[in-house]
Design a protein around this nucleic acid. Structure first.
Length: 507
RNA sequence: GCCCCUUUAGCUCAGCUGGUUAGAGCGUCGGACUGUUAAUCCGCAGGUCCAAGGUUCGAGUCCUUGAAGGGGCGCCA
């Protein structure tokens, strides 16, 4: 009785829970285990029968399919015997259709690839109607593909970009882990609006059309979800300092939101930022870390993703063929990346920068639009001149005038400057912004008062100085900006899957 | 937020000082093709010239306003 009961339970489970699995086995090609194309190309087992699944990148001569499954930049060639095939299936083998192929892996008879599959069975997993499908097997503009963001990852360019994006994200965690940093998650929703890094997005559950009002007629955020006004984070730095002053070395790596109306190829409203924060580090340790970190990330991609980089490199060269010499990049992509990791970043002070700019040709000829004067922030034309013309490599500028920088930066002995540093890269400008933090309570309080930052909001931050404080430093690195540099793409909207910018939040 | 540019076939573009039925390449579709590498070759189809208003005998072309996209600048990472 018991035995029979168990049997029927099993039959029930099999029938209902494993039903889908059972149905999958009905199709012949699905029964075998699928092999990823990256594995086949890395370690080809000639003569063996394999099954691959992927998307058709090209179909030539009624015979050759270039198949890509995303596991690698490279395609696998499938050879079809079109005469001895179901003609309906053959017709469905079209651009970007999804297919499963079973066949024998053989050495390729043609040039251009080492191995190929002699197809014995082809199954159409997802057909593709080319009369309505927007993508074409040809060069398409970035602007067009941006509008078709749900398809653009199927292209060589974007799949390469997003593989590299993954690689850099992984390398960031590896770098810090190997160096004994702790990965810290700082809040996405913050109750502090004193962070001073830009306009914030309000987070609320109140009905904007019918929000409760206080006696002063203003919205009463005491009745909001958190009992106070809250926003999306613009920086995890202040909270990361809490971590650094307890765990020594920490870093954050998460989304950041800025409601600035910035319309440039270097700004996003939602982007990812890496913020290491280290106890006992001064501004020079901080610069060493920033430089070593940037070089590590670039080197990691050069070592692990050469095929993707080579494609992006060639893509840029093709693009620049029709451009005037002075508009082209001075070096190829891979050449530039190698140059950056093999040379020291130039290190100058803000005052040096002003002097260099004042003795520059464009300054003397009156070509700069913005004033070059001690105390005024460098504008992007000045930064570009320093990086692209004067030094021709990344430049770290430090010791900025205190009046153009944030309240928490450590005041220097001269009484005029703070221990701030920016790392500037060719083509994209500021990639890193950081500083040694002001650890002296009185000086910090004085600075906050001068800049009208209420102490009550940041008492916890001041406590870090009151109780067991120490000198410490950190910086923020724009994740998409470093991806922009490594991939050689020219618009930041093309290195994030679903860009959020003023007036645009599609997908 | 400011300045500049663009908008013509599915995509990328040409279209002269306003003047017949608006063109090309690529793609699609149809055909050929068993060693191709965004294959190639032959053929057909495909257009509310961004929108609204205006000037004119006549507007893809000139003017005004708006929209969308791009580039530069500011703010920053």
């Amino acid at each position: 009785m018991n035995f029979h009961f168990n049997i029927s339970i099993f039959a029930f489970l099999y029938k209902h829970i494993f039903k889908n699995f059972n149905e999958m086995e009905m199709t012949d090609t699905s029964r075998k285990r699928r092999t990823e194309i990256a594995d086949i190309l890395k370690n080809p087992s000639i003569g063996e029968e394999v099954m691959v699944k992927g998307w058709v990148r090209a179909f030539r001569s009624n015979r050759f399919v270039a198949l890509n499954d995303g596991s690698t930049f490279n395609n696998l060639q499938i050879v079809l015997d079109s005469d001895n095939m179901d003609q309906d299936i053959l017709k469905s083998v079209s651009f970007h259709a999804c297919i499963a192929v079973t066949g024998k892996l053989v050495e390729s008879a043609g040039a251009g690839q080492a191995v190929e599959i002699q197809a014995e069975q082809v199954e159409i997993l997802g057909s593709n109607d080319l009369e309505t499908y927007p993508l074409q097997p040809k060069k398409q503009t970035m602007e067009f593909l941006r509008e078709k963001a749900h398809f653009r990852m199927r292209t060589n360019t974007f799949s390469a970009v997003f593989r590299i994006r993954h690689a850099v994200a992984f390398a960031i965690n590896k770098y810090f882990n190997d160096k004994g940093f702790y990965y810290m998650h700082t809040p996405i929703i913050t109750g502090s609006d004193a962070e001073g890094a830009g306009e914030m997005f309000r987070v609320t559950t109140l009905n904007p059309e019918d929000a409760p009002k206080g006696e002063d007629g203003k919205v009463d955020y005491n009745q909001d979800f958190f009992g106070k006004a809250t926003n999306l984070t613009v920086s995890g730095q202040l909270q990361a300092e809490i971590g650094a002053l307890a765990m020594g070395k920490v870093y954050t790596f998460g989304p950041t939101f800025r409601a600035e109306n910035s319309n440039t190829s270097r700004h996003l409203a939602e982007f990812w930022m890496i913020e290491p924060e280290v106890a006992f580090y001064d501004i020079f340790d901080n610069m060493d870390l920033a430089e070593d970190f940037c070089k590590y990330l670039i080197n990691y991609v050069l070592e692990k993703y050469p095929d993707d980089l080579a494609f992006l490199d060639k893509r840029i060269q093709d693009l620049e063929k029709n451009m005037k010499k002075e508009e082209r990049r001075p070096m190829g992509l891979i050449e530039t990346l190698k140059f950056v990791i093999e040379n020291d970043f130039e290190r100058i002070t803000y005052s040096d920068a002003i002097n260099y700019l004042k003795s520059s040709k464009p300054y003397k000829k009156g070509k700069f639009k913005f004033p070059v004067e001690w105390g005024v922030d460098l504008s992007s034309e000045h930064e570009r001149w320093l990086v692209e013309k004067k030094f021709k490599k990344p430049v770290i500028v430090r010791d900025y005038p205190k009046d153009i920088k944030s309240f928490y930066m450590r005041q220097n002995e001269d009484g005029k400057t703070v221990a701030a540093m920016d790392v500037l890269f060719p083509g994209i400008g500021e990639v890193v912004g950081g500083s040694q933090r002001e650890e002296r309570l009185e000086l910090l309080q004085k600075r906050m008062a001068e800049m009208d930052i209420p102490e009550e909001e940041l008492n916890w931050y001041l406590d870090l100085r009151r109780f067991g404080g120490t000198p410490h430093s950190g910086f923020g690195l724009g994740f998409e900006r470093i991806i922009l540099f490594i991939t050689g793409m020219s618009n930041i909207r093309d290195v994030i899957a679903f860009p959020r910018t003023p007036g645009n939040a599609e997908f």
